[in-house]
């Protein structure tokens, strides 16, 4: 009937905040679902409901075929959770933390000890294994927490923003771990604000905002939804931006978005490389010097902007510029917001 993670009409309210407002999910076995959304979208609340930490106000949830509301303890046997904030005992060493978790999963002491050793190696914590985790850096603590979630390799895993706080190398390694897990048959639900990450890891993506799923599909489907390629131009002189916009609008299928700070202009187009050549010629004719130009497929950032009217991690266009991952930045998003007032998806 349903996948390894299945939810129907999940609602959870805190006071007058509807953290979840009728969320449906269906994750087939041995696949990854990326739950993507800005701060406060309800990602953590969804994870907490599915992992028995919160009781939803209404709705159904099944994990590994078990009713989460009726049999929470059986569900707990089948899941691993790495929450948004590292859940480790800071006075215990890394090894002691993992051993404790193993024993609580009903492993024998010796077995728990071996498993702890394996995971410490795998997550590059062997050197720090016998230090209280209080002395760990943020990323090390994060890795310890992930290791704790993997102690018994449960069939269903939940990871709430697993790569937040990891450096690029460790992030890459975690991606490998995740792919390995899924290849081994694990079903994973992960939340992320890194669009690139969802694109890379997830078979299916659910975009959530204000407690609702506003779009779902594969990364490619979501991209297709907002149309073809983009031409992206970086002009050399800020003074040339206005003229360049004119040129791009002439070729484009829609309005051009402008980021004055980086002097980057983007416009959706159809026509591929041939069109790109024409754009270059025209810009040249008009005497506009360019630093960079290219054709690119829409990123999930574009998807997000068109669906929610704002960039994933930047709600306030004024304080933007530090989007954790973006090709577009806040001002681009603001521009996009005006033109894509498109309603939510399929």
């Amino acid at each position: 009937m349903s996948g390894a993670i299945y939810a129907e009409g999940l609602v959870k309210t805190f006071g007058d905040v509807k953290a979840l407002d009728g969320v449906d999910l269906d994750v087939p076995e041995a696949t990854v679902l990326g739950l993507l959304g800005p701060n406060g979208a309800g990602k953590t609340t969804a994870v907490r409901c599915l992992t028995t930490l919160l009781t939803p106000d209404s709705g159904k949830a099944f994990v590994a075929g078990i009713d989460v509301l009726k049999h929470p303890n059986e569900v707990r046997r089948s899941i691993g959770l790495s929450g948004q904030f590292a859940a480790v005992d800071e006075y215990l060493t890394g090894r002691e933390n993992l051993q404790m978790v193993g024993q609580l999963y009903e492993m024998r002491a010796k077995e728990a000890k071996e498993r702890a050793g394996e995971l410490l190696e795998r997550f590059h914590l062997a050197d720090a294994a016998d230090r209280p985790s209080k002395t760990y850096s943020g990323g090390m603590r994060r890795r310890l927490d992930l290791a704790a979630a993997l102690v018994v390799s449960p069939p269903v895993m939940f990871m709430d923003e697993p790569t937040t706080g990891l450096d690029p190398r460790n992030r890459q390694q975690l991606w490998e771990v995740i792919q390995e897990l899924v290849a081994g048959g694990t079903t994973l639900l992960l939340t992320t604000q890194y669009l690139e990450e969802a694109d890379h890891l997830a078979h299916d993506i659910c975009v959530v905002d204000h407690g609702r799923v506003i779009a779902r599909g594969t990364a490619d489907q979501l991209k297709a939804q907002i149309g073809g390629e983009r031409v992206e131009v970086v002009v050399h002189e800020p003074d040339h931006i206005t003229t360049a916009v004119e040129v791009l609008t002439g070729f484009g299928k829609g309005e051009a978005t402008v980021d004055r700070h980086t002097r980057k202009l983007t416009v959706p187009v159809t026509g591929g490389a041939k069109l790109l050549a024409e754009v270059i010629r025209e810009l040249d004719t008009r005497g506009i010097e360019i630093d960079d130009i290219g054709l690119r497929r829409p990123t999930l950032d574009d998807v997000f902007i068109s669906l929610t009217g704002h960039l994933a991690e930047v709600k306030d266009e004024e304080n933007g510029a530090n989007g954790a991952n973006g090709d577009s930045d806040a001002k681009g998003a603001a521009a996009a917001k005006d033109k894509h007032k498109k309603e939510a998806a399929p």
């Binding site: 907490r48 992992t51 028995t52 930490l53 303890n73 059986e74 707990r76 046997r77 899941i79 959770l81 929450g83 904030f85 590292a86 859940a87 480790v88 005992d89 978790v101 609580l104 999963y105 009903e106 704790a148």
Partner: peptide
Amino acid sequence: HKGLIDRFRSLPMARGA
């Protein structure tokens, strides 16, 4: 009020442990 309690609550532990 520490994150650790979430870990405990998500494990198949005896209820009063």
